[in-house]
Amino acid sequence: MTLSFLWIPVTLAAAAAQTGRNATQRRLTETIGTIGATQVRFLYGFPFAVMALGLVRFAFGESIPTPNALFLFYVLAGATTQILATALMLSAMRERSFSVVTAYMKTEPVQVALFGLILLGDPLTPGIALAIIVATLGVILMSMKPGAGLTSSGVRPIVFGIASGAFFALAAIGFRGAILSLPEGTFLMRATTTLVWALGTQTAILLVWLGLLDRKSLMASFKAWRPSLGAGFLGALASQFWFIGFALTTAANVRTLALVEVLMAQAVSHRFLSQVTTRRELAGMVLILGGVGLLLAMQH
């Protein structure tokens, strides 16, 4: 496999690791609450990222790239927008409209493509644009419950959902921008260096935030350190693969292929939760697979 296609298995590995992380975080929510479970991906993921950077440096004998001002700007932008995106997602889901929020959040690949074109100059051909739209429509179709309209839950979930998707998109663009702004190093070294800085920044922000405003959740996450380590490891593993993907191709390609995570989650629900797949969900799956297939066919 040539390097130009390496992003495909890397992105699939990221989606699989993220599915596992989400399942672990879901279990943690029951014991330490939503905010506590959310921040463990950063707090407990950071040490694993540092270990990964050490392993890359030792294995390949590369020096760690020196950050520049543009790199630090992109890292800070990516780190803060990802936190904001998560906060907006949680706020929207408090409106008791999970399916609607998910549908609007999954407009992220479309927004990633637009932001990538505007901010980084990432190419966007008509074929790739069509692939992104088809796959995104598939996710929206799968996310909607039968009989529920996209506007049936009011305006707030719509605004929060789209805004959350926008901030997740900006986070992806910020992290890709940071990787590209490093002047030296292989794609693996630049991706891992960026991951360490990103998780370190997010850990610092959240420690200060929770220390001042929600010490109960912070202390609960410390007490539940054993299961939190698992969530942190899977979170760091997923992020490592995402960042490698961002180093190899456009964020739009990575985040569109990443929609297969929805299919993985559906498979987990069907296998372990005995949930029946509806015709609407099957139609959505066909669109996702069609969009992803078209995206891969557009690669040269």
Rank of each mutant, 00 (worst) to 15 (best):
227 P>M: 04
243 F>A: 09
220 A>W: 01
252 A>S: 15
265 A>Q: 09
140 I>T: 14
258 A>M: 09
178 A>V: 10
241 F>G: 04
213 L>W: 05
180 L>I: 06
251 A>R: 09
204 A>W: 05
219 M>L: 14
276 V>K: 06
147 G>N: 03
151 T>F: 15
166 A>V: 12
158 I>A: 02
244 I>M: 15
273 L>V: 05
177 G>M: 13
195 L>C: 00
234 L>T: 12
198 A>R: 10
245 G>K: 06
190 R>L: 05
163 A>L: 15
149 G>Q: 07
219 M>C: 00
213 L>Y: 09
139 V>D: 02
169 A>P: 06
178 A>C: 11
162 I>C: 03
138 G>Y: 07
276 V>H: 06
230 G>C: 05
140 I>L: 14
150 L>A: 01
163 A>G: 13
143 S>Y: 11
239 S>K: 02
242 W>G: 03
238 A>W: 07
284 G>T: 11
216 K>W: 12
193 T>P: 09
165 G>V: 10
215 R>P: 02
285 M>Q: 07
147 G>E: 02
251 A>C: 06
152 S>K: 04
273 L>R: 11
247 A>I: 08
261 E>R: 12
208 V>F: 14
140 I>R: 05
139 V>F: 06
205 I>A: 05
265 A>Y: 01
275 Q>L: 04
233 F>W: 11
235 G>W: 13
242 W>Y: 14
187 F>D: 08
266 Q>R: 06
205 I>Q: 07
245 G>M: 06
284 G>F: 07
195 L>D: 00
232 G>E: 13
252 A>W: 10
213 L>P: 00
165 G>F: 10
264 M>Q: 14
261 E>V: 11
189 M>D: 08
205 I>E: 06
176 R>G: 02
225 W>A: 13
249 T>N: 11
205 I>M: 13
176 R>L: 01
156 R>M: 10
152 S>H: 10
256 T>A: 08
240 Q>F: 15
146 P>V: 02
207 L>E: 04
279 R>H: 08
162 I>G: 01
210 L>N: 14
212 L>A: 14
273 L>F: 14
178 A>N: 10
269 S>L: 04
270 H>I: 00
247 A>P: 07
176 R>Y: 01
250 T>L: 01
177 G>E: 12
225 W>N: 07
184 E>F: 03
202 Q>V: 01
233 F>C: 08
197 W>N: 08
219 M>N: 05
206 L>C: 12
237 L>S: 13
240 Q>L: 15
261 E>H: 12
281 E>L: 01
184 E>G: 04
200 G>P: 03
233 F>G: 07
233 F>K: 08
171 A>C: 04
198 A>M: 15
216 K>E: 15
283 A>L: 15
158 I>F: 15
266 Q>H: 06
156 R>I: 11
239 S>H: 06
153 S>N: 14
193 T>N: 01
186 T>R: 05
271 R>I: 15
222 F>Y: 14
195 L>R: 00
260 V>W: 00
203 T>W: 04
184 E>T: 13
256 T>V: 09
281 E>W: 01
148 A>P: 03
